[in-house]
């Protein structure tokens, strides 16, 4: 475990906590894409299949449980909670996320570290996570007044990916034969998707104006 990876995991944790707090306290999910949340729940479900099979560390197990619980809780809130579900921006959250699940599954079948069920699911989850933010970014372009908590949620998600890239660079230079093309390429693609969000987010923060993403 290195500082970059720990900081990355903590930033990822903060992003889901920010989102959960927003939804739980103000009972609103305005501006939040249910499709992205469903994709994330699927990412964790597919990736953490070895939760009870391989014990890596207490930290690893606890964090997996936290990410699984939080992602499914957020989906539950947005789908089932009688107040929150009414604030869901259904008509603007129209990204056809089914169209990205299938290609990621096919890619997982073709490009994986070992052709076993768990490894295919793991690769699928890596590819899916890379594009899971798309529905959320599309929704932000269509949302007029983006509220701070939603913007912070996306910002922390992007920050966690940037930190993971530093983690991989560090591990590449400190651990012999630490090579993971699947995570690296998918992770770089994922981070690039946040590029223009970061640009407009930092610009709005510097000029102290409301965040607006150009459509």
């Amino acid at each position: 475990m290195n500082l970059f990876r720990l900081a990355g995991d903590m930033t990822h944790l903060v992003s889901v906590v920010v989102l959960l707090l927003k939804i739980h306290t103000i009972k609103s999910c305005a501006g939040v894409s249910l499709k992205t949340q469903e994709l994330y729940a699927l990412v964790f479900a597919a990736r953490y299949l070895d939760l009870f099979v391989h014990f890596v560390s207490l930290y690893n197990t606890v964090m997996k449980l936290v990410f699984l619980a939080s992602s499914f809780t957020i989906v539950w809130y947005m789908r089932r909670h009688k107040i929150v579900r009414r604030t869901y921006d259904k008509e603007h959250d129209t990204f056809r996320h089914h169209f990205i699940v299938l290609p990621c599954l096919v890619l997982g079948l073709l490009l994986n570290e070992k052709f076993t069920f768990r490894e295919v699911m793991w690769a699928f989850s890596i590819y899916l996570e890379a594009v899971a933010i798309l529905p959320q970014l599309v929704l932000l372009q269509r949302t007029r007044n983006i509220d701070n908590l939603t913007a912070q949620y996306v910002f922390f998600l992007g920050a966690y990916r940037v930190l993971y890239i530093f983690n991989w660079i560090y591990r590449y230079f400190t651990e012999p034969h630490f090579v993971h093309w699947i995570s690296w390429i998918a992770g770089i693609v994922q981070t690039l998707l946040y590029g223009d969000f970061f640009y407009y987010y930092i610009l709005s923060w510097k000029n102290n104006v409301k965040l607006e993403l150009p459509a």
């Binding site: 990876r5 995991d9 990822h12 990736r47 070895d50 099979v53 391989h54 890596v56 560390s57 690893n60 964090m63 997996k64 990410f67 570290e113 070992k114 793991w122 993971y164 983690n167 630490f178 993971h180 995570s183």
Partner: peptide, 10 residues
């Protein structure tokens, strides 16, 4: 991490 070992990253 050799092949087949559990992925140690989240």
């Amino acid at each position: 991490r050799q092949r087949g070992e559990p992925h140690d990253e989240l």
